[in-house]
Each structure stands twice: as C-alpha cells, then as structure tokens.
C-alpha cells in the first residue's frame, strides 16, 4: 500500500503493509530512530509523536491510518546546531538523564506548549503523565518545560 504523509513538515511517501506500526515505519523505512520503543503497548510513551498536532503512541498507530496526515517526531523539533528552547532547557535543567524517554517527553511537552503557553505545574505533570521516566523523578523535566515556556513567552524562536 502506498502511503503519503507529511513528516516533520516535509511530504513523504512510502510503500508499506498498512497495519505496520507507525513506530516501525519511522524507525525502519523512514529512517528516523529518535522515536523509541519501551513497551509496545501504549504505557511508556517513549514512542510519542504528534499526529495532526496531538500526541499519540506510535506503537498503537498503524501506518495505514497516517495517509494524508502530519507527523512530528523529535527530529522535527530542532537539530544539534539549532536546538529548540524546549530541547535546550532539557539539557540545561537536567531534564534528560539516560535520554531514552526524552524524545517522547519532548513531544508531549511540545504539544502542551503549543496549546498552553503558560502552564502551571499540575498542568505540566498531567501533560507528561503518559511518558514514563525511570531516571529523573520528573522534577527536572517539569522544570525544563516550565523554563522553556518562559523562554518562549519571552520570544525565543522555536
């Protein structure tokens, strides 16, 4: 089945069996291994990507359902040389330790900040509740998101 979609802002086309998980399509034929697999059943959130702007678990989405839709992965947030404020804050505030939850965590945070520019702590925690982290205790992640929201409000470029 031929599938056309928008991936990180660019049109992409691939030929895939339709029920193949978006996660496997991203990590395989689409060549983006930033999206991680921690459980394969919607619990850990390390596979989180944006599907038309909302965060979803790429391990539960079949690629066939992505026809004509827009996907954003961690690779779409920024590059090594041009980090987004959110990415920069995760580094500076200690929001990433082992880093395996980080791509999914960043995507959930991105979804939040696009809708809510000035989230309070409970709102941040709720937005990240589908992303399990075993390293940080979450506090520094919450700090990272709060700080990024501040920077964005001060006009930092995404």
């Amino acid at each position: 089945m031929k599938i056309s979609l928008t991936l990180n802002g660019a049109p992409r086309e691939l030929d895939s069996a339709p029920l193949v998980r978006l996660l496997d399509a991203l990590r395989g034929p689409l060549g983006l291994t930033g999206t991680k697999e921690g459980c394969g059943e919607g619990e850990c959130g390390s596979c989180t990507v944006l599907l038309d702007g909302d965060p979803v678990n790429a391990c539960l989405v079949p690629i066939g359902q992505c026809e004509g839709r827009a996907i954003t992965t961690v690779e779409g947030l920024g590059e090594m040389a041009h980090l987004s404020p959110l990415q920069r804050c995760f580094i500076d505030e200690g929001g990433a330790q082992c880093g395996i939850c980080t791509p999914g965590m960043l995507i959930s945070a991105e979804a939040l900040l696009r809708r809510v520019p000035d989230p309070d702590e409970p709102t941040i925690r709720e937005a990240l509740a589908g992303n399990l982290c075993r390293c940080t205790g979450y506090q520094r992640i919450v700090e990272s998101v709060r700080r990024a929201a501040e920077l964005l409000r001060e006009g930092a470029a995404r």
Partner: peptide, 12 residues
C-alpha cells in the same frame, strides 16, 4: 475522559 490512560490514549 481525563482519567483514561493519559493524553496519548485519550487522543486515540
């Protein structure tokens, strides 16, 4: 609805 899974599950 807010208590179902977390946002990613609620979105799907």
């Amino acid at each position: 609805a807010k208590d179902v899974g977390a946002v990613q599950i609620q979105a799907r």
